[in-house]
């Protein structure tokens, strides 16, 4: 499917795309980017995988990004049937207690990648069966990949 077809198809699933903050853009990226409000993410992801025309069955990258004011989770999806790629992104505005629905029930690989994002960004994935720190020890304070993380001893800022 081309990016335009994908965009049309997905927009058609929502009665009011603006209400869920559904936005598409191809600017500054080689893939089609879709952003959505975190509350509606899980449902959208579920359809993206199960719909016969989209069939995004392969989540190949799950990234957390700290944009200063808000945190963003970026999902790179690919369909192994059609080989089309799409990026789904969702911004969480609450920095203190960022929460988003887990997608590990849709793609098993998300289990570890979400733990990584939790570990390094502190994003809590709801309904995750084993949300523990992946790399750092349990008593580690702070979330090192956030931009406001300071560690005077170990960090060299150039």
């Amino acid at each position: 499917m081309t990016n335009q077809e994908l965009q049309d198809l997905i927009t058609g699933w929502f009665t009011d795309p603006a209400a869920v903050k559904l936005e598409f853009t191809e600017e500054g990226s080689q893939f089609l980017n879709l952003s959505i409000h975190p509350d509606y993410l899980h449902e959208l992801m579920y359809y993206l995988k199960l719909n016969r025309n989209t069939s995004f069955d392969y989540l190949f990258c799950l990234t957390g990004i700290d944009w200063g004011k808000e945190l963003e989770v970026v999902y790179h999806l690919e369909s192994t049937d059609y080989r089309h790629i799409m990026v789904v992104r969702s911004k969480i505005e609450d920095r203190e207690n960022p929460e988003i629905e887990s997608v590990q029930d849709i793609w098993a690989t998300a289990n570890f990648h979400e733990r990584e994002a939790f570990d390094l960004f502190g994003i809590r994935f709801k309904n995750h069966p084993n949300l523990k720190r992946l790399f750092l020890s349990e008593d580690f304070e702070g979330y090192p990949l956030r931009k406001d993380f300071v560690d005077e001893k170990n960090m060299v800022v150039k």
């Binding site: 500054g28 990226s29 080689q30 190949f60 990258c61 970026v74 790179h76 990026v87």
Partner: peptide, 18 residues
């Protein structure tokens, strides 16, 4: 300004650089 993603096939599988 923008985002760049590159996939390559390492000996162990798909490496992505984002």
């Amino acid at each position: 300004k923008g985002e760049y993603y590159q996939k390559v096939e390492t000996a162990r599988g798909e490496l992505g650089v984002y």
